[in-house]
Design a binder for these strands. Structure first.
Lengths: 234, 234, 234, 234
DNA sequence: GATGAATGAGTATTCATTCAT
DNA sequence: TATGAATGAATACTCATTCAT
C-alpha cells in the first residue's frame, strides 16, 4: 500500500501530512526537511529496484540497498518497515503503471489486430522506461510475494476471459484452449520483454513490437503464400 | 517423487559413478557398500528436486534436504561439495534429458508442423514425467545459477538458429526477427508447461499440445474463414 | 497520570531549576520561554513515569517517551542527557517524597504501634497518589539502576537501625535478627503496596493499612484469645 | 516444558529418545555423543542461570550466555529455540522444585507453627542450593514472562486460600484480609530469601528461619512478657 | 529550544559447512 | 561412510543518540 509514485521529487510522506499539505499553504516551511526525507526514500526505492532486478529479493540485503542508496543501514528502516515492504511497494507501484498502460488501448470495440499491437506497444514502452522493474515484475519472486497473485497470473486471467467471450461470440476457433493460450501469450510477453529490457540493442524496438504482434496473430509460420497480403496490416 | 526416474539404485547419469560402473567389472567386491552409497546419493538428489521445486534454491536448506532424504546433515557433504553442486547436478541432468527428448523429433527434413508438434509433445511428456524438475528448470534461479546460461537461453539460441537457416533458405518471412521469436517461443513453452505441471488437471494433455502447436504455427487469431482449412497448412 | 504532583508548570523538585527559581527575581524576562521549557520537561517526566511503570526501563524507548509526551525524539535530549538520567530523576524524586512521608510519623518517642501504623498509612497514601511511581520504585530495575542502592535497601537499613537501638534498650526480643526483620518488613510493604497500587479495588484502603500494621506487630497468627486484648500492646 | 533436571550428567534430550533409552540397552553406543550434547546443554542452562540472575532476561544476550558456557554463538540454538525458551526452562524447572520442597511439609493436620517453620526451612534450603535461581524466580521478569502467572502470585494465591479456609473455620481473626496477608507473606519471603542468597554470610541460616517463622506467627513486636511463653502458641 | 532524519553499534537468529567420533 | 554437534559469518531489524535546520 502507501504507494507514492516515483515521478516527482517530493513524495507525500504519509496520509496525514499529505492531507495537511493540501490544505494549508504556510506548512511550506518544513519543505526543506521533507524534501530531504523524500529524496532519501526515493533513493532507497531506486536502489531497491536496481538490486532486486539484479539479484532478486532474497539475495539482496537491506545493507546493500542502504549503502547503494548512500545511507546508513538503519536509515532503511526509517522509510520502510522491512525489506518486504520495499519490495511490495516497488512491485505494486510498477504493476499499477503497467496496468494503466495496458488499459489504454483496451477498447472492446477495437479490432483485434489493433488491440494486440497496442498491447505489445504498451509493454515495450514500459520496458523501455523501466528496465529494472520489468525484471522484477516478471520474476518468480513477484509471483511468490503474492503481488496480486503474481502479475502474470493476473494478465493471463484477463486474457483468458477475453478469449472465452470471443469464443462465446463464435469469433474464435475452439480448438485453442483459452487458459492455455493465455498462459502462452503471457509467457511470451514476459520473456521477450525481459530479454529485451536487459539489453535493448538486441533488437530495434519496432521489430520487437512487430514480431510480438505477428506471432500472436498469425503464428510463426504463416504459409508463404499468406504472408505477403498484409495490406490491411496495421 | 515423479523425479529422477533413472532406474533403481544406481544413477547412471551421475557422470562419475556412471563412468566407473561401465569400465570395471572386477571391482564387484564392494558392491554392497557401493549400493548403499549410491542409494543415499540418489535419495539426496530426489529430495533436492522435490524441495527446490517447492521452495527454490535459496529457501531450501541443506538440513532440510538431508532430513527429507532420511540422512544426517553431514552426509550431504559426503556426496556433494555444497548446495550449489546439488542444484547444478539436478538441473544439468534435467536439462540433458529434456534436450534429448527435444532432439528426437528434430530431423531437419521434417515438415514444420510435425516438428513443432513433436516439440510440444516432448515438452509436455517431459513435464508429466518430471513435474518438479520442470519447475526448477524454468525458474529464475536456474537462470541465475548459470545452469549453462539458463536452460531457456539455450533452447532459444537453438530455435533462433533454426529460424535463421530457414530465412536463409527463403522459407520464412523476414519481418519476424529470429531472436525475438525464439525468446517468445521459449517463454510461451516455459510458462505453459510450468503452469500445467503444477496441476495437470488444468487442461487435458492433448489440448495443451494442440494449443501450443497451433499458436506457434497459426497464431491466436486465425481469420475465421482460414481456421477450418488446415489442408493448406503446408 | 497521577504522578508528578509537584504543582503546575515548574517542577520545584528539579534541583537545578528549583535553585534558580528561588534565587533570582530579576530574571523574569524570559519567563515565557522558560515556562514552555519547564512544561516540556515535566511532560517528559510524566510520560517516563507512565511508561516505565508499564514496561520497565529496558522495554521503554526514548522515542516512545517523547511521542507520549507529544514532542519530537530529539527534544528528549534537550532535557536529559540520556534515558538513564530520566529514570534516575524519576526514581530519586519519588524516593525523596516517599522518604519524606515516612519521616513524618517517625518521632522516636512514639508508641511503636502508632509508629507502625503511621508508616503503613504513609505508604498506602503514597501508593494512592503515585500508582505508577510505586511500581517503578519497587521494581528490580530500580534496584539494578542503583537508585541509591535501591529504595528498599535504604528503608531496610533504617528499619534495621531502629531495631538495633530497641534491642540495645532491651525493648526487643533478640531472637529476631534486625537485618532479617528489616528485609522482611520491606519486602512485605513493597509487595503489598505494589500489588494494591495495580488495582486499588483489590481491597479497601483501610483494610490494607490495618492488615499491614497487625501483621507487623502481632504476626499472622495471634492466638484467638489474645487478639482482642490490644491493651497490653504497649 | 521439556524440563530436564540439572542434576545428573545426562539429560533426556527429548521425549522420543528418552523413551527409547529406557527400553533398549544396546542404544548405549551413542552415549558418547549424547553425553557431549547433554553437557553442552547443561552448561548453557547453568550459564543462563548465572547471567539471568545477575542481569535479568533482557540485559543478557545469547552471545554472552554462549560464550560464558564456552561455546559458539550458534550452538545456543542447537539446544534452545530462542532465549525465551532457555529462560522458561530455567524458571519452570526451578519453580517445580521449589514447589516440591514447599509441598513436603504441607500436611493439613499440622500445627501451624510447624507448618510455617517447615515452609521457612524449605525456602531457605532452596535458596542455599540455588542461589541464582532464587534471584531469577523472584524477579519481576519472571512475573512478566508469565511463568505460571509469576511464582509469587501463585504462592500468594495458595496462602490466601489457606487463610480463607481458616477464617471459615473460625480459627483466624477476620481483621486481617487474606489477600493482603498473602501478598505480605510472599513479599517477605521473597525479599528475605533473595537478600540472604546474595550473601549467606549476612546471617546464620538458623536465624533466618527462626526470624521468618516468628515474624509470621507473632509479629515483630511481641510484648516482652508474651515472648517467652510459646506454650500457648497455637 | 524544538525538530526529526540520519546514524551505527548492538542483538537475536539462521544456516552452510566442518570435523571428531 | 555416516553421524550430528559445533561453528561463525551473515542478516534483518532495533534503538539510543547526534546534529543540521
Amino acid at each position: 500500500m502507501s504507494v507514492t509514485p516515483h515521478l516527482p521529487t517530493s513524495r507525500p510522506l504519509d496520509p496525514i501530512s499529505a492531507g495537511i499539505d493540501e490544505t494549508a499553504a504556510p506548512t511550506r516551511r518544513e519543505t526543506a526537511a521533507d524534501r530531504a526525507r523524500a529524496q532519501t526514500r526515493s533513493r532507497l526505492l531506486t536502489s531497491g529496484t536496481v538490486l532486486f532486478a539484479e539479484r532478486g529479493l532474497h539475495c539482496t540485503t537491506t545493507h546493500e540497498i542502504a549503502s547503494h542508496a548512500g545511507v546508513a543501514a538503519g536509515t532503511f528502516y526509517n522509510h520502510f518497515p522491512d525489506k518486504g515492504a520495499l519490495f511490495h511497494e516497488i512491485t505494486a507501484e510498477g504493476l499499477r503503471e503497467l496496468d494503466a498502460r495496458l488499459q489504454i488501448g483496451a477498447h472492446p470495440a477495437r479490432r483485434l489486430r489493433d488491440a494486440v499491437r497496442s498491447h505489445a506497444e504498451a509493454l515495450v514502452s514500459f520496458a523501455e522506461d523501466h528496465r529494472d522493474l520489468i525484471r522484477i515484475l516478471f520474476s518468480r519472486e513477484s509471483d511468490a510475494s503474492a503481488v496480486q497473485h503474481g502479475v502474470l497470473d493476473d494478465l493471463a486471467a484477463r486474457i483468458a476471459d477475453g478469449r472465452r467471450q470471443a469464443i462465446t461470440r463464435g469469433e474464435m476457433p475452439t480448438r485453442i484452449d483459452p487458459d492455455v493460450l493465455a498462459q502462452a501469450v503471457v509467457g511470451m510477453w514476459a520473456r521477450v520483454v525481459a530479454w529485451w529490457a536487459e539489453n535493448p540493442e538486441r533488437a530495434p524496438r519496432e521489430i520487437v513490437i512487430e514480431t510480438l504482434t505477428r506471432i500472436q496473430l498469425e503464428g510463426t509460420h504463416p504459409s508463404v503464400g499468406r504472408d505477403p497480403e498484409p495490406s490491411t496490416e496495421r
